[in-house]
Design a protein around this nucleic acid. Structure first.
Lengths: 125, 125
DNA sequence: GTAGCAGTTGGAGTGAACTTTAAGTCAAGA
DNA sequence: TCTTGACTTAAAGTTCACTCCAACTGCTAC
């Protein structure tokens, strides 16, 4: 797969794909004779994983660390597990926070609806 | 309340509080004779709201817009309601995505636990 | 063979959200 | 009175995560 195809498939710009590669979030991608990137299925799987983790808020730095550990082989299994567990915990916290904020917004919107219906109220903010 | 007190109370740096004020996320805070900020309870309520919305991911720009509308009075009630509804929708989407990612991480961690237990497996990444 | 297009590189630029700096003011305590 | 420390301002600097640019190369179609 070319960079354009991967870019389209995952909705990630070619620049970003090259950037991720440079940062080590994707392993060095094989090139054709002419030096053009040729992504394998495995590359794609990893790109999809990176996209998912990035959109969940894992930093480039953390993902870099994870793949660095991965490169060091089996002896880093535990370290990688711990890294994922740490990130999972942070995500869980953000998840709960988000849930609360959603409730708060729902309430605020309902207050707005009442204010709009009663035609003359104003809110504190 | 001084800026130091508010900063401590909400775990927001004094710099950030001044920045928020400059950007219109907090109304102009009253000063003492000497020009030192003196936050009211209402300022604090608003700061708490801003903090909550910021940590949920609402941008400075959106919050700025919201408070600008607020300054224009009752006639912007609907617009503000719509703004909040739009942000709520985006949050909801991120919430669902986060839920999926949490599940995915749980699964991945369980795979790691198995690999660690069986002592000789390696994973794809 | 040359136009055009998709790709390559390294490096510079961007936008969001702070964060730091420089230079100063003010109030309280020794 | 002097020092200390928390505050003030405007403006420059930082960080993160891209995003764009210039200059180039290599296929493909005419």
């Amino acid at each position: 797969m070319t960079i354009a195809e991967v870019s389209k498939k995952y909705q990630i710009s070619a620049d970003t794909l090259r950037y991720y590669e440079k940062e080590g979030l994707i392993p060095y991608v094989n090139r054709t004779e002419g030096g053009v990137r040729n992504y394998t299925e495995e590359d794609c799987t990893r790109i999809e994983f990176v996209k998912c983790m990035r959109s969940a808020g894992l930093s480039i730095e953390v993902l870099k660390k994870y793949f660095e550990l991965f490169k060091c082989g089996k002896r880093t299994l535990k370290a990688r597990r711990e890294l994922l567990a740490t990130e999972r915990k942070a995500l869980q916290e953000r998840f709960v926070e988000l849930q609360d904020t959603l409730k708060r917004l729902d309430y605020k919107i309902s207050v707005y609806d009442k204010a709009i219906a009663s035609k003359d109220k104003e809110l504190k903010f």
